[in-house]
Amino acid sequence: MSDETLQGLKNIPYFSEVAETALAELASCATIKSYPKNSVIIREGDEGGALFIILSGKVQAYLSSANGRMVILSSQGPGSFFGELSLLDGEPRSASISALEPTVCSLVPRHVLKSWLRNHPDAAFSIIRSLTQRIRNLTENVRGLALSDVYGRLAKALHDMAVENEKGWIIQEKPTHQDLANIIGCSREMVSRLMKDLERGAYLSIERSSIHIHRKLPASW
């Protein structure tokens, strides 16, 4: 199993400059765990216990309230990791993580990671770079929530999910309207209305499993 973890660590862009011998040392202390689709891997407020390295599958980080409202912070797949914040500051988990599809993770215990980082400061800088990028992403999300209207936030979310092809842009894995509402912080009904308006305006078309964006979405609606 350590070989699988080692490959997972090597696939993380932020660890590209860390020596393979150092990564192998960390991988040898990890355990593998599988999670079914829709299972909760980490709950907000839990005590930090391990670093999770995604070997396969996809997860989402989110915040939720007592009345069931949810805000999605990010989604991650292979080549990424999560759970490092609580390990570094000793505080409870700051967000929940759930599996969007069957997911396999490699778990590195907290005491192992802390000792490893002391012995390999170059790896510590790699994690700092990762945290810096996540802070920048969260800053952009806050900017959107504070300075953009609902349509502007929806247009940005669709743009961020889409990849360009010969006919325009496509979102391969169609999110539900509730997913989009959770990402941009509004009601599902508002998303449904705006998506229907964009479809009527021939800006996009919605297929069974994908969304095709035919031309640049307007700046305002």
Rank of each mutant, 00 (worst) to 15 (best):
Y151C: 07
A66F: 05
I135P: 05
E20W: 00
G79S: 08
G57T: 13
S126M: 02
L194G: 05
D197Y: 04
H159V: 03
S64M: 07
L107D: 06
L180F: 08
G185T: 06
R69N: 10
K174A: 09
K216Y: 03
K58N: 06
Q7W: 00
V40K: 15
L51W: 01
R43Q: 13
A146K: 14
N141W: 01
E173P: 00
S65W: 02
E101R: 08
C29V: 09
I211F: 09
A99I: 01
L6A: 10
Y14W: 10
V18M: 06
R129T: 02
M195S: 03
R134W: 01
V104T: 15
V112Q: 15
L26M: 14
R118H: 11
S34Y: 02
I32V: 12
I135Y: 08
A27W: 03
I12H: 13
L107I: 05
S210Q: 14
L147Q: 09
H214A: 12
L73C: 05
S39P: 02
T139M: 10
A66L: 12
P92V: 03
G201M: 11
G79Y: 09
S148P: 01
Q60V: 02
F82G: 00
G77N: 08
S115R: 13
R143F: 10
V163F: 05
K33L: 11
M161T: 03
L217W: 04
L107M: 13
L9N: 06
V142I: 12
A123M: 05
A24Y: 07
E166V: 00
I128K: 06
T103S: 14
P121R: 08
S80R: 11
I171K: 11
D160K: 12
V71F: 02
R143I: 00
R188P: 04
E44D: 04
Q178F: 06
R153P: 03
T31F: 08
L63V: 03
H111P: 02
S96N: 12
S64P: 01
L85M: 15
T21I: 13
G49S: 14
S98H: 09
D160C: 07
E47A: 15
L198P: 03
I54W: 01
K37S: 14
R93M: 00
E17T: 07
I183D: 04
I184K: 03
M1D: 06
S205N: 08
P175I: 07
S74D: 10
P121I: 06
C29L: 14
A61T: 07
R208H: 08
K33V: 11
E20Y: 02
L154R: 14
C29A: 15
F15P: 02
M190E: 13
A181S: 12
A30Y: 07
I211E: 08
A30L: 04
V108Y: 07
G152S: 02
I41D: 12
R69A: 11
S187K: 15
V59Y: 09
S220A: 09
D3W: 11
A95H: 15
S187G: 14
K114P: 00
S80L: 01
S74A: 15
R93E: 04
A99S: 12
